[in-house]
Nucleic acid binder design. Structure first.
Lengths: 246, 246
DNA sequence: ACCTAGACTTGATCTGGGTCAAGGGTTCGC
DNA sequence: GCGAACCCTTGACCCAGATCAAGTCTAGGT
């Protein structure tokens, strides 16, 4: 499934090399890339791109968390995507950004100037195909989230979010997704609310309720221990298979 | 924007030829396609594919409307995509379906056997690129819908749905999206509710309210007249630009 | 013509989550 | 060490939309 993740050609802190570009490629392409690649750092809370801005680059998250958000004129906001390390940002072929991209934590991104990247994509078909696969994955994630937003209760929403972050975190640490899981929440209660279509008060109340009921333990406000991942999945109302089926 | 829509090489009732395959291609590729192409018809209410089924084909909607839906064990369902004529169905590279695909009205699809289609995709890079563009469009639509599901009121949700269907319908008829619009709702109140994350009673009440307030007129239950599209957009809480910016 | 079934509407009531308000805990800078 | 700024929690109350319960309307079928 993650057949490209173990490739280590090139700089290992740059996930795009592994996932979008390096997959099944030869060293020549890495040479090509190095001329158009650069890193950018952002502080927590900083906006990476405003919706409507010209996109000068595409890239991927090296460390930290970014979020895609949409805002209505009256200030209501909805997070429409959570970008974790190794996630791709940007739209080859799109001139302007469709969403605000905000650094939710301190953030390092690996960027490629858009035009040269697009040219390279045309010349190397498997990059386009890898990008298509990644986009399809994002689409699946977005659609799964539509079920969360449209039909789940506040408690189920929280459990869903915790299980996504917990699973992702655990797989990065190469642990299993069974039994006990420990991780730090990279989001404020407000950011969680924006992702879940709730208010921060409701998020806080439901976190307390899940703690009271023994589904999670909290050390401080952000450090979470999940004694039974199955129990959490159950609270989330998901099928037990854990999303193994694409 | 719809640069590929006016191509008329090949059978004009088969949108995939126009949108996914024919774009900027030469006649040879049409020959290749004809060996692996077939049509399928479905009655309203029939299920095209069950989630988890092996996908034997990809294809596109020729006429009628299909929907992608997700269902929880307890029966709560959420529609995660509405497939209108010319929309693409299926995932090159994916073995199994992720969602139920249901014919919401009588439906004709133009199908391609999946394996040969994938092979063709590898050989003709611009098809992969067209598919990437289409997938990015779907992703944008899904994310826009996340804002609807997460943050909009029932009245705004209904107005959003009506404006999407109305706009799509009007553009197919080559009318503008300004001023008056007339169309038939292709969805039952229940299907609307499933798409909007509401109950059918709430949908019905809000339709009545929009009618009472003069935002829409109803002839029968399904035939809708929108005297002012701007007014409708306003009720939907959208920016005025009408989504012209991809 | 009548009967039935499915799609829709409308009313009455209930409730989950929003809103408003008042705190508490930590981490800064001074 | 003290105030200020965040971030978070908890309580009291309210309301949009869910739920439960009758209906109405229309299209087919006999």
């Amino acid at each position: 499934m993650n057949e490209t993740l173990d490739l280590t050609i090139g700089c290992e802190s740059c996930p795009i090399k592994h996932r979008a570009v390096c997959a099944r490629c030869d060293a020549d392409e890495l040479e090509t890339l190095d001329g158009i690649k650069y890193y950018r750092s952002f502080e927590a809370g900083q906006t990476v791109i405003w919706s409507g801005d010209r996109m000068e680059f595409v890239g991927s998250v090296v460390s930290g968390i970014a979020s895609l958000t949409q805002t209505m004129e009256d200030g209501r906001t909805q997070m429409v995507g959570l970008l974790l390390p190794s996630d791709f940002v940007g739209r080859p072929g799109r001139e302007f950004a469709s969403y605000d991209v905000v650094a939710t934590t301190d953030l390092v991104m690996c960027c490629f100037r858009r035009k040269p990247f697009e040219n390279m994509m045309v010349e190397t078909p498997h990059v386009a195909q890898r990008l298509l696969e990644m986009t399809l994955d994002e689409l699946d994630a977005a659609r799964e989230w539509m079920l969360v937003l449209g039909r789940k209760t506040a408690r189920e929403k929280i459990a869903s979010l915790l299980s996504i972050i917990g699973r992702r975190d655990a797989s990065l640490k190469l642990e299993g997704t069974i039994g006990k899981i420990v991780f730090d929440l990279p989001l404020t209660r407000e950011a969680m609310a924006d992702y879940l279509g709730l208010t921060l008060e409701t998020v806080s109340r439901q976190m307390s309720a899940l703690k009271r009921d023994g589904v999670i333990e909290l050390q401080g406000k952000r450090h979470v221990t999940v004694p039974s991942f199955e129990r959490l999945m159950d609270e989330a109302g998901d099928d037990a298979d854990g999303g193994m089926m694409a």
